[in-house]
């Protein structure tokens, strides 16, 4: 500081101040994701080819691929995947819609909060698959019992996510709207719903993965068609190549669902 009249120059050599704020900011390095997958595939292929792992326990990647091509081309996959997607779609939609509605009730009304919330909290920790036998007794072994299990499993996390979202909406915005005389339902539609949307969407993510788990489990317990049934049957027949192909389909299904939700997030939460 040459203009500073108060201080004189301090004797000694100049030492540069080192930069200390590095790290703790991970970013995405291009091509590493692809390389990681390739490495895992290569390791898998080499270990099975060289006989380190018995082919019975883990089939070669190319065998899994050919069995995938086989089930895809002979219509087996379409039949199983179709049955699964239908259950997933109906069950999740049903559970999510009812869950959202109840969540809004709990978030907006004292009566609903006092009555429904304790009930939902009691239902939440039950592993829903334990209820499948009961649903089978009530609703039969057909589609309805499986859809009901999925819907029930989706319901409580959706309620909790939605009402948490409604609770987190800035009260200042609501008071503002009230101070302008905006009607109740307009406030719910224009302020509470969009304000709760981030929480609802993250609830959607959680409940979708719960739905896929329940779907697979329900199909393993009693279904003729469905990816879960296919995986179980392949296991019983010791067709590990089919089994792994089925598991990869489940993985792809989960990935696709999360991509779709991500798309909605980008579209609905553009304002953030």
């Amino acid at each position: 500081m040459p203009d500073n009249q108060a201080g004189g120059a301090t004797p000694g050599a100049e030492v540069e101040v080192p930069f200390r704020a590095s790290g703790f900011a991970p970013t995405r390095v291009p091509f590493v994701a692809g390389a990681t997958f390739a490495a895992v595939l290569a390791l898998w292929w080499i270990s099975t080819k060289a006989g380190w792992v018995s082919e019975f326990a883990l089939p070669r990647p190319d065998e899994v691929l050919s069995s995938f091509v086989e089930i895809a081309s002979n219509g087996t996959l379409v039949k199983h995947l179709g049955a699964s997607l239908q259950r997933l779609l109906i069950g999740w939609t049903l559970g999510a819609l009812v869950g959202c509605a109840v969540g809004f009730g709990v978030g907006l009304s004292s009566l609903a909060r006092s009555s429904a919330l304790p009930l939902v909290s009691a239902i939440f920790p039950i592993p829903k698959i334990a209820l499948l036998p009961l649903f089978i007794l009530w609703l039969g072994i057909g589609e309805i019992s499986k859809v009901a299990t999925i819907a029930f499993g989706v319901f409580s996390p959706m309620v909790i996510a939605t009402f948490g979202g409604v609770d987190s909406v800035d009260r200042g915005l609501i008071r503002m709207a009230q101070s302008f005389g905006v009607p109740y339902w307009t406030i719910v539609r224009r302020i509470v719903l969009p304000g709760a949307m981030p929480a609802i969407l993250s609830g959607t993510r959680i409940s979708a993965s719960i739905a896929i788990i329940l779907l697979t489990a329900a199909e393993m317990i009693g279904a003729q068609y469905g990816i879960g049934a296919m995986v179980l049957a392949s296991g019983n027949l010791m067709q590990t190549d089919h089994l792994i192909a089925g598991v990869l389909v489940l993985s792809a299904m989960g990935f696709a669902v999360s991509q779709i939700i991500g798309m909605f997030e980008r579209r609905l939460l553009r304002w953030r």
Binding site: L173, R175, A177, F180, G181, V182, T186, R190, P194, W271
Partner: peptide, 18 residues
Amino acid sequence: ALIPWMSVEQNVMLPLEH
């Protein structure tokens, strides 16, 4: 107390809508 998901115009419009 501006609503973050509404444009300036929509914010000003909100109290007129009803």
